[in-house]
């Protein structure tokens, strides 16, 4: 058994537990939509494992800073706030309080994808091939680059890192007004910030393509080479029983991708109201996820797209490439790598 985050990328190694489970229908019923994320293309029936944690990308704000700066929190006044409105409000907070960073986004193509889809990015062409050559993707990329140039975004995080980088420290130190991360950060902020200031998850900003984040998460899967598939299935059945999974979610503050728990709800094991509120916001976001967001998460080579997006946009941020060159390079990188796979 293994806990994995590259769900589709490792799918070829997973054990199909169907013959060993006492009630496969329970799995289909409760984990149905998320089983696909762990299957190889063309497979629509195997049961390789379950999500230990469903994540949704989305922003956090430091509400205390907004209040100290006398700036209205845009999501208090409207259900569909745009990225530009958040940027303007965050800049105002930073300027008024002289904090260093109005906004930050994790250095990750996965984090960028939600906003891009909200701006209309399609991510797949009619043939199902990944593409970034559309107006929606370009619009979000352009906004993103401009925000780096005008100081709205944390200036060092994307240009000066290799691979993933985050701004937990800056947010926890109240140096940052608006931070695009995701539901997994709730546990960390509960520990690191507690109630030192009012931090809050807010709904994903909106654009012409919707108000979506990107789903994701980690899964516990059986490995096909095991010599004890029956035992693996038994342990999995125990772990996925509603009580056990509910308690696991309550203690870890992880959102669960289990239909039964979604209906009954989870009694989060924290006294921190800020954490409970944040989790409620993310749970509420599940309904706003677009089909493109689900498709992209299910796409087996999505990290290929995410990494190329991250690295090439970084080059555009520092002026090594123009925005159009960067987008062309993303597409080239994706196509070249996929050609190697099929070749």
């Amino acid at each position: 058994m293994a806990r994995v985050t590259d769900l589709g990328g490792l799918a070829q190694y997973y054990l199909d537990m169907t013959p060993y489970l006492s009630d496969p229908a329970y799995w289909e019923e409760n984990f149905g939509p998320f089983l696909n994320w762990k299957r190889v293309p063309g497979d629509d029936s195997s049961i390789p494992g379950f999500m230990t944690q469903l994540t949704i990308t989305g922003p956090f704000i430091n509400r205390t800073l907004f209040e100290q700066a006398g700036v209205d929190v845009p999501s208090d006044m409207s259900d569909s706030v745009t990225w530009e409105e958040w940027a303007e409000a965050s800049r105002e907070v930073a300027e008024t309080l002289e904090i260093p960073y109005p906004m930050a986004m994790d250095r990750s193509g996965h984090r960028f994808a939600g906003p891009a889809i909200s701006m209309g990015a399609m991510y797949f062409d009619d043939m199902g091939h990944p593409t970034v050559m559309d107006e929606g993707f370009r619009n979000m990329a352009e906004i993103f680059v401009n925000w780096h140039l005008d100081g709205t975004m944390h200036p060092e995080m994307w240009p000066l890192s290799e691979g993933y980088a985050n701004a937990y420290e800056e947010f926890a130190n109240a140096e940052l007004a608006f931070y695009m991360a995701g539901s997994w950060a709730v546990g960390q902020f509960s520990e690191a910030i507690g109630d030192a200031f009012d931090w809050q998850a807010v709904p994903n900003p909106c654009g012409p393509g919707g108000c979506t984040g990107l789903p994701g998460g980690a899964a516990l899967v059986g490995i096909a080479t095991t010599e004890h598939p029956e035992e693996v299935a038994r342990v999995m059945e125990y772990l996925t029983s509603q009580d056990v999974l509910g308690e696991f979610g309550a203690r870890t503050l992880f959102i669960q991708a289990h239909a039964g728990l979604s209906e009954s709800g989870i009694d989060w094991n924290t006294d921190l109201q800020l954490a409970k509120d944040a989790l409620s916001v993310f749970v509420g976001q599940v309904g706003t996820l677009t089909q493109t967001a689900f498709d992209l998460q299910a796409y087996i080579y999505n990290r290929n797209v995410f990494n190329a997006t991250r690295d090439r946009l970084t080059q555009a941020l520092v002026g090594e490439l123009t925005l159009d060159e960067a987008i062309e390079r993303i597409q080239d990188d994706v196509d070249t790598a996929l050609a190697e796979v099929s070749g």
Partner: peptide, 29 residues
């Protein structure tokens, strides 16, 4: 620097590493 800003301090060895090992689709050749 992670090879940054952008790729300003990215040397050949880092290119070899990222191409062969850190991308999802690893181009060993």
């Amino acid at each position: 620097t992670g090879g940054g800003p952008g790729t300003r301090t990215q040397l050949m060895v880092q290119y070899i590493y990222t191409t062969g090992f850190s991308n999802q689709i690893q181009l060993f050749g």
